[in-house]
């Protein structure tokens, strides 16, 4: 009756795809999108270095359906990355105590997202002017 034989359950190899962890896996992959976008930036930079023809080809490629879809995906990835990044931010710092009370994590997240919107907006306005 008192036999002890603990049963160890194996973690599923596909745990990262389960409903519970899907959001986390998507968040991680959005970060891979950041690197893919880095490669696009590098290609554009290099096209300018190589001269007018290469630059024209790069700009032409940007208007192809493939490039547009890619950039829509990258835009979604950047948005997801930015949102989740600032949701995680308050977890990485000590509890912020102001006037004897802890600042809610939501406040920190919202302030950082506001700052990010300003930064991105500044880039867009700078490019348009």
């Amino acid at each position: 009756m008192s036999e002890r034989r603990p049963y160890v359950r194996r973690q599923s190899r596909l745990w990262w795809a389960s409903r519970t962890y899907r959001g986390y896996t998507l968040r991680e992959l959005s970060g891979v999108g950041v690197a893919v976008y880095g490669a696009v930036l590098l290609a554009g930079l290099d096209s300018v270095r190589r001269g007018p023809d290469a630059y024209a080809a790069f700009v032409g490629w940007l208007s192809t359906p493939v490039a547009i879809v890619l950039h829509l995906v990258l835009l979604a990835a950047m948005l997801l990355h930015g949102l989740t990044w600032f949701q995680t931010l308050p977890k990485t710092m000590p509890r912020l105590i102001v006037g004897g009370q802890a600042v809610p994590q939501k406040t920190i997240t919202n302030a950082a997202i506001g700052l990010a919107m300003l930064c991105s907006l500044a880039l867009v306005i700078g490019a348009l002017s």
């Binding site: 950039h71 990258l74 950047m78 700052l115 880039l123």
Partner: peptide
């Protein structure tokens, strides 16, 4: 990338072409 990424993609991916 969290601060500037979204703006960068809009600029180089959509405004530039």
């Amino acid at each position: 990338s969290a601060l500037f990424g979204t703006g960068l993609v809009i600029v180089t991916g959509f405004l530039l072409p």
